[in-house]
Design a protein around this nucleic acid. Structure first.
Lengths: 198, 198
DNA sequence: ACACTATGAATGAACGTTCATTCATTCGTG
DNA sequence: CACGAATGAATGAACGTTCATTCATAGTGT
């Protein structure tokens, strides 16, 4: 088969997606990957390293999926494209997405290293907010706060739909996206003019 | 030396807060609670029931904290009070809050029973949105979508601050709360559609 | 008042199982 | 044949759970 390390990662990803990190055992990973238990240790120092590597891997997958074509168009178009990609990615029941969710809300696990990687991978999103801030068209909040207000809802909405808590309706999603974009806009006297300094 | 079942629950809560659900072992719970391992089984059928009971307990704690005085004032005041309480609760590093976060994003764990309890406990929040919908002052979205857009950001923001990713600033929080409230409002004046004038 | 018995909460050693990890051995290939 | 890759049985620690036992207290009979 292909790259064995990758097969092990994909196996772990799948197991975490189904049963959470607590359900991850090395024997399960070995079975799922079609590999002997000992083989895993040729590619990963121990279980912890496997989990950490997978975390980085999944983070990169998410970033790549969400930031595709992130630099096409004006600020609004770029924002809405990322928002929609985030929504559509989060709606999927793929191992990558489901395991991503497991990692995102762990207690200890937000090491500086992971934080660094996140910053690097999602830099375009940061830049988008910074650009809007510089031209005064976006509310004067920390980029992370802007993310919380306008981007996180895409993920929350996607999760609710994936779990069957609400039904999928295109118009609702479009409206939600529009409202998220509006929510962080600075309302100026004259529409579409930038630079509101106080 | 109060209620022993409660001492066991508080011990489990603390352990989950520190090490996640994966870090919960019955022996740790016993030590933390100052109780013999076997004693836990006088109060809980097995580990699963302990975890489930704690989940219900934590959910009730959160609901109580967030919905205090939820019926005082007009729609906006009620919304903002809940938003602020949510934010302040989520900012805490208490076992209850930290373990709540662990439960919220599990893969399988959203059983119908838990879903039912959530619905019941957070009914006032649902009613608030429904009231706004009925009088046409709130955007025509499913209450869960409204929650995702306007309430979840409070939790996300609180988490970012708790983790030290952004600094706490009262004005920023007030602005964020205001923007969340505005984001789901139907603009009643002549500029109800996309373009914004004054 | 007293002696004796019954109760059941609490214990913690012990059990079987599962886990992560190791390593002597086998396999595949150049 | 040589050598790294792969194996999977073996290992011991840790796990959830059980249960024979302890012991303070409540109940009962005299």
């Amino acid at each position: 088969m292909y790259n064995k390390q990758d097969r092990i990662l994909r196996a772990a990803e799948k197991i975490i997606a189904n049963g959470g990190i607590q359900g991850l055992s090395m024997q399960h990973v070995a079975n799922e990957a079609g590999v002997a238990a000992g083989t895993i240790y040729r590619y990963f120092k121990d279980k912890n390293e496997l989990i950490l590597t997978l975390r980085r891997d999944v983070l990169a997958q998410v970033a790549e999926a969400i930031l595709e074509d992130h630099d096409q168009g004006n600020l609004e178009q770029r924002f809405k494209r990322i928002w929609m990609k985030m929504y559509h990615y989060g709606k999927q029941r793929t191992p990558a997405n489901l395991s991503y969710e497991q990692y995102a809300h762990l207690p200890e696990s937000n090491t500086d290293e992971i934080r660094q990687i996140e910053l690097q991978l999602f830099a375009p999103l940061l830049h988008l907010f910074e650009e809007g801030l510089k031209q005064g068209s976006i509310q004067p909040l920390h980029p992370r706060a802007l993310y919380a207000l306008s981007m996180e809802p895409a993920m929350t909405l996607a999760r609710a739909i994936r779990r069957g808590l609400i039904e999928y309706q295109t118009e609702e999603i479009d409206l939600a996206c529009e409202l998220c974009w509006q929510s962080i806009q600075v309302k100026t006297e004259q529409h579409a003019k930038g630079a509101v300094r106080t």
